[in-house]
Design a protein around this nucleic acid. Structure first.
Length: 271
DNA sequence: CCCAAGACCTGGCGGC
DNA sequence: TGCCGCCAGGTCTTGG
């Protein structure tokens, strides 16, 4: 479900509710997520004041005194703010209760999400230590992309989805960014010229930034209220549009597959 | 090191 | 209706 823009929007929606508040309790109804939720997490968080809610890649980092908890939404996870008591549904695995009576509820039907303790130096945690640069940060550009892709024989699409190269490019935005850059998803990663990498890096940044802007309106309603999540609210140019016309050149969007994942591209304007 | 495939889960959909 | 196979926005782990 959540790609980087969604996770960032959730962070922005949640942070004002969390930061500065004290955690009254952590209720874990279903500890069996991607990895078991540590039994000790409850006592680590209870009574602690939330210092900050940060995002790294698609992970949320909940900082308290002594360290940070690491929260990942997986493929089907969501977090939302509830005002008070509300009977949990089948997939409402975790509640974080705050001292003002609010309840942060984690729902995740597929249980690919994770909730872990990352310690006093969370960025050194195994899951974060080897991640590539943030796509919207200063450490990511065409040069980094070019260096990371050179010599690689795999298709460029799965290559840019590898979080060791750059984080936060999920299946939807990989297709969208390649379309924006005019590159076929099946192109050998190592065949991209430096200018092509410049275009692709820029496209990745623009696509993600635009999704954060548009996601901010739809997803915030979801986090705070009872609207529907706005994952498809963005103006997608190719993703999910097989057989339809390309909005740029009028070609017909094609569905292909790289690895096990669906890719969409326009043969007319992507080389 | 590189790459492809498998693994973890549930739910929704189309087809018979 | 019911069952079956396939698909889904992630990403770590394994095996060649």
């Amino acid at each position: 479900m959540p790609e980087l823009p969604e996770v960032e929007t959730v962070r922005r929606g949640l942070a004002p509710h969390l930061e500065g508040r004290r955690i009254a309790a952590l209720i874990v109804r279903q500890p069996r997520l991607r990895w078991p939720v540590p039994r000790t997490l409850t006592s680590r968080l209870r009574g602690q004041r939330v210092q900050k809610l940060e995002r790294r890649a698609k992970y949320l980092l909940l900082y308290v005194e002594g360290g940070a908890a690491l929260w990942h939404l997986g493929m089907s996870g969501s977090l939302r703010v509830l005002a008070g008591d509300a009977p949990p549904g089948k997939h409402d695995h975790v509640d974080l209760l705050l001292d003002d009576g609010k309840r942060i509820r984690f729902t995740d039907p597929r249980r690919f999400g994770a909730l872990l303790w990352a310690g006093a130096h969370p960025h050194r945690h195994k899951l974060l230590a080897k991640l590539g640069p943030e796509p919207l940060g200063e450490d990511f550009d065409g040069a980094v992309l070019h260096a990371g892709l050179s010599g690689r024989r795999i298709a460029v699409k799965p290559a840019i989805m590898d979080s060791h190269l750059v984080v936060g490019v999920g299946n939807i935005y990989a297709s969208e960014a390649l379309h924006r850059a005019g590159l076929r998803p099946g192109r050998r990663a190592g065949s991209l010229s430096r200018p092509a990498c410049d275009r692709l890096a820029t496209a990745i940044r623009e696509v993600l930034a635009a999704a954060i802007v548009s996601g901010g309106t739809t997803l915030r309603d979801f986090v705070d209220g009872d609207g529907q999540p706005g994952y498809f609210a963005h103006a997608l140019q190719v993703y999910g549009r097989a057989g339809q016309l390309c909005l740029r050149c009028g070609g017909t969007i094609r569905l292909s597959r790289h690895g096990q994942r669906a890719s969409y591209h326009c043969p007319g304007c992507q080389r």
